[in-house]
Design a protein around this nucleic acid. Structure first.
Lengths: 120, 120
DNA sequence: CTAAAACCTGACGCCGACGTCAGGTGCAAG
DNA sequence: CTTGCACCTGACGTCGGCGTCAGGTTTTAG
């Protein structure tokens, strides 16, 4: 596959894929003309990268955790990193849930208001 | 309270507080000398703002949802906004949980490996 | 063979949440 | 009064994840 096709299938820009390569998140081989060649699995990998970005992880972290999505190989020090990141995500989730619930309360309360005042 | 004290108690920089004011997230009165004066509740408000930022919300959105944390006043169109934001957070949470679990699997699997090989 | 797509490598632009520096003012203490 | 710290207002710097333009090459369609 060439870069345009991967971009289209993964729903990202060509520029993004080149950027991922520069950040060493996504590797490619080159054909004789110098154009990038990707295996089929690249699309899935790009989707994973996108999800990791969407969670708020920076390139550096993604670069370090990506290998484990492929193989299960792991060293003790990277184990530490993973655990730390895991804890960070847990805290994020807690905060997020709080805020969401707070909004939910506001919403339901407001719905109650502009319906017919208090129900029970 | 003056700005330095609020900053210290909330654990943010003075610069951040001035920025919040510029973004209309945090209001202050001025004393005759032109210095900012904050009520005691400001510290809690700043903490809330920080949590909203940490969840990934931009200033614009925070500016719009903050009023509901104070009063319960709400208009139908803002209700829409809140619901949309709520859905967005839900999706974020789902993605986040997936990634976290994936990491968790890697971690536990790795722990099993470098202990004494396969258990069962 | 030729025109058009698709691709390539720089390199600069942008936006948001501040950091930071410059140059001036307010205020409490000795 | 003066020292000194906390405060003030600009205004420019930074970083990350790309968008985008410039100028050239490769591949594909007719």
């Amino acid at each position: 596959m060439r870069i345009g096709e991967v971009a289209a299938k993964a729903g990202v820009s060509v520029r993004a894929l080149r950027y991922y390569e520069q950040q060493e998140l996504l590797h490619s081989t080159r054909n004789p003309g110098g154009q990038r060649q990707y295996p089929a699995g690249a699309v899935e990998r790009v989707r994973l990268i996108q999800r990791l970005y969407s969670v708020g992880l920076p390139s550096r972290t993604i670069r370090e955790v990506l290998p484990f999505a492929d193989s299960g190989e792991v060293s003790p020090e990277l184990l530490e990193l993973l655990a730390a990141e895991h804890d960070g995500l847990d805290r994020q989730m807690t905060d997020l849930r709080d805020v969401r619930d707070r909004l939910h309360d506001c919403i339901t309360e407001a719905r109650g208001h502009h319906r017919t005042a208090s129900p029970s």
